[in-house]
């Protein structure tokens, strides 16, 4: 009996890769805020929360947008999951690195 899933990989690929993109954009936003006072100001969406509001909003928007686009592109398709997993874990790693203070403070203006 064939036990393999009949559900295409595309669904999982889109959800996983977009999570990686969201994590990476968070790390990138943290670093960019350290580099540029203008970006810091731009990311200050609400004064009481400060630039954290913009950094996290950017990450969430990147995650949702990429998930919608990838879901549309990979709907009912089998994708190269191995490559997607590698790319995702690299992006999550970079995202975690970007949120680590001793790293992002290197870029502090």
């Amino acid at each position: 009996m064939n036990q393999k899933s009949k559900i295409p990989d595309g669904h999982a690929g889109a959800a996983i890769l977009s999570a990686g993109i969201g994590s990476f954009v968070l790390g990138l936003a943290v670093v960019l805020t350290e580099i540029s006072p203008k970006i810091k100001e731009l990311f200050t969406l609400t004064a009481p929360v400060g630039p954290l509001s913009g950094k996290t909003t950017a990450a969430v928007l990147a995650w949702i947008t990429s998930w919608i686009i990838l879901s549309f592109l990979w709907k009912n398709k089998d994708v190269r999951l191995q490559k997607i997993l590698i790319a995702t874990f690299i992006m999550i790693g970079l995202g975690l690195l970007g949120t680590f203070p001793p790293f992002f403070e290197i870029f502090s203006h």
């Binding site: 959800a15 990450a59 975690l96 203070p101």
Partner: peptide
């Protein structure tokens, strides 16, 4: 500074996991 940023990775990843578990269901076992 670490806490306020890194915590936002958790819900993004957890949502992806929950979605995949829901979509793939019992197929995940294989």
């Amino acid at each position: 500074e670490w806490k306020e940023h890194v915590c936002w990775i958790a819900p993004i990843l957890a949502t992806a996991v929950a979605y995949i578990v829901t979509i793939y269901g019992k197929n995940l076992a294989h």
